[in-house]
Design a binder for these strands. Structure first.
Lengths: 146, 146
DNA sequence: CGTATTTAGTAACATCTGTTACTAACGGCG
DNA sequence: CGCCGTTAGTAACAGATGTTACTAAATACG
């Protein structure tokens, strides 16, 4: 077989990245209109799903480095959406959403979940399962790769 | 049914974005070591697959805005990887890879294609097809959405 | 204990990216 | 031809992001 020539439109990693960017863009409208940036939204989501985590845990859970998390937390605190509490270990602060933050999170989450639902709903159930399974496999493989 | 609580790890758009980022990261090593940035690489790929395109076409083909393309083209020209040729319409320059650029492109493309192959190879053929079909559907749906 | 190493988080700087507004060139049409 | 709207590309600024190095606190261990 001839040397396959790389075409962007059929290069899987590129397609996934591009799709992800467009989804980010589409969802971004939901939280940008609420005055929340992407990294801030990620931190909110991470904290919402596991209250009282530390910033370091957010780094472990999300694809953000610790500086990005630090900045997002500072911004969220300024906006009154998140609280830090210093614990025994004086280096770490545990994070949780304020009431205001929780309300905002729920509002954005509802939009996000609806978006996901609309997207998946149009794939026939069998295809949907196949796709999600494939996604899971790639997540593992990619994580394993070098 | 209860209000589904958003969890990052099971939120499809997030998973796709995160996977894309990790793939970008993994592939990024290939061209960063050659002194080429992501936007530059995208421009090279776009030009390689359709020589003599104009910058505006690159904008149409890739998820980059015209400023990003402009900067990448300037950088690539400085590095001697790409050439511009002013045509009849003096506003547009057609782009093509130099010999050096072509060589570099092929070297990076080989790594990229190998990466893709390794990734897909581990999905059973049926699953692979299902996944790629699903991906295609989502690309369409997302494009159609609002 | 007390010194050495590690860890959580941030400050400060450099670089990259997005936005707005501009210039030059083209095309339409009176 | 000559004005007007449009298009390709870039300059210049603002804001976001990555990188390096630092501080403070905790742990390791002789």
């Amino acid at each position: 077989m001839s040397a396959p020539r790389l075409k962007l439109a059929s290069f899987t990693p590129y397609r996934i990245v591009a799709l992800g960017q467009r989804m980010s863009e589409a969802l971004g409208a939901a939280y940008r209109s609420e005055g929340v940036s992407i990294p801030e939204w990620r931190v909110m989501a991470a904290v919402a799903q596991a209250p009282s985590v530390a910033a370091r845990d957010v780094v472990a859970i999300t694809p953000m480095d610790k500086m990005a998390v630090s900045r997002a937390v500072t911004a969220l605190e300024t906006k009154g959406l998140i609280e830090r509490e210093r614990g025994l270990d004086k280096r770490v602060s545990t994070l949780k959403l304020t009431a205001k933050g929780e309300t905002l999170f729920q509002r954005i989450a509802a939009i996000a979940l609806k978006y996901e639902e609309d997207l998946l709903k149009r794939l026939p159930p069998a295809d949907r399962k196949a796709f999600l399974d494939g996604l899971a496999s790639l997540e593992l493989l990619d994580r394993a790769a070098q």
